[in-house]
Nucleic acid binder design. Structure first.
Lengths: 209, 209
DNA sequence: GGCTGTGAAATGATTCACAGCG
DNA sequence: CGCTGTGAATCATTTCACAGCC
């Protein structure tokens, strides 16, 4: 243990966390956690062992302690703040959903450039003008920017977020953003996923024959 | 070449495709394609070499030929058909967006269970009752189901899609679906992404100090 | 000369297999 | 006995380095 935690492990931790939240029992085994998340039990054990999580041999893991541990590793116990750019269908859906789901990462502001939308309420937040993005992001100490604006506006919004000092961007716009290396960018792109899926679907079909 | 194409390569192909569509020149180098997609030039060359794409040494790749080649590999030249479950904000945003972006994968139907939405038009499609999902999916020969319904409804919708014979599912609901092994499932989960991002953002911060 | 194609090396992630402990 | 923790083995992916061709 005490080694550097692999990225692949980090990406699985949120899934473990969600599965744990749904568990009613006080303890569970790596096998059970694997079943609920779709990973193998060895994978689960190895992941948890990275941060010295101590299960009990012959018994399993304490659900509550494990949850807290994962929250701490991910930094969710610190209260991470995010802001949404775009109050159209996508931004609205994402904002509502994120606010309903959990308070670990909280959306604290939402911006749009359409005067008709500014001032409206979305998911308990008042839509603000994108012109005030930098100012508000700084004031609210936002760490993560979520981009849910049309493709042609995405780069400009990314620049604003970057200038305002966010450390990470979650980009739903179908463009590859150019950013400062210090900003961690995660892209989520429906089109690219659909196209890759098209391949795997066909590959499965031909392999089966 | 002629080896099995790695999954990691397949996942990069759609990004190459999009970058190529934006290129005005007749040819481009692996270096340039890498710059536009964020991958290294060796990576690009290795990926393209898997399917025997022949660039010209000293010159580069023919844009049009490469595009066609990638489309064929991904199976996009066959016309892949998808259906959307959920006509709320998320389903509406995704449907509009996918229909606007490209005809390689086409969304041919959209379903909802809310009587108020059934019959309305979204992205040029009439919203149909989810009760008719199986029937319509079969009739339209849909290969991929997209799930944009609330978490509690997602599994039931996945079951319907599976029964109707889709080969792949793109799931935006925050649950891990249980499915037949023959159905390829790709999850896109805002919450999990945000939580992983929270870690990387903090990790970058502490590493920098 | 410049850029592709590709073996070989390095790195990273997963799976195996089993020792160790409650 | 059952289940965790972990080295060792395997497998996958990326990076290096350079020969080969236009």
């Amino acid at each position: 243990m005490a080694r550097r935690i692999p990225d692949a492990t980090i990406r699985r931790l949120p899934a473990y966390l969600r599965a744990l939240e749904a568990v009613r029992e006080r303890r569970l085994t790596s096998f059970e956690l694997g079943r609920r998340t779709g990973f193998s039990s060895e994978q689960v054990r190895k992941d948890l062992a990275y941060f010295g999580a101590f299960g009990t041999r012959g018994v399993g893991y304490e659900v509550a302690a494990l949850e807290e541990q994962i929250r701490r590793i991910l930094g969710l116990d610190q209260g991470v703040r995010a802001a949404m750019a775009g109050a159209g269908h996508l931004g609205t859906a994402l904002a509502r959903y994120a606010r309903a789901m959990h308070k670990d990462v909280s959306i604290v502001a939402i911006f749009d450039n359409d005067p008709a939308r500014i001032g409206e309420e979305v998911a308990g937040l008042v839509v603000e003008s994108v012109d005030r993005l930098e100012e508000r992001v700084r004031a609210l100490d936002v760490a993560i920017g979520i981009i849910a604006v049309p493709a042609q506006a995405a780069q400009a919004v990314a620049d604003r977020f970057t200038r305002a000092g966010v450390r990470g961007l979650l980009n739903f716009a179908p463009v590859s953003l150019v950013t400062d290396a210090r900003v961690y960018v995660q892209n989520i792109d429906l089109t690219l996923e659909l196209q890759a899926l098209a391949y795997f679907v066909r590959a499965a079909e031909t392999a089966r024959v």
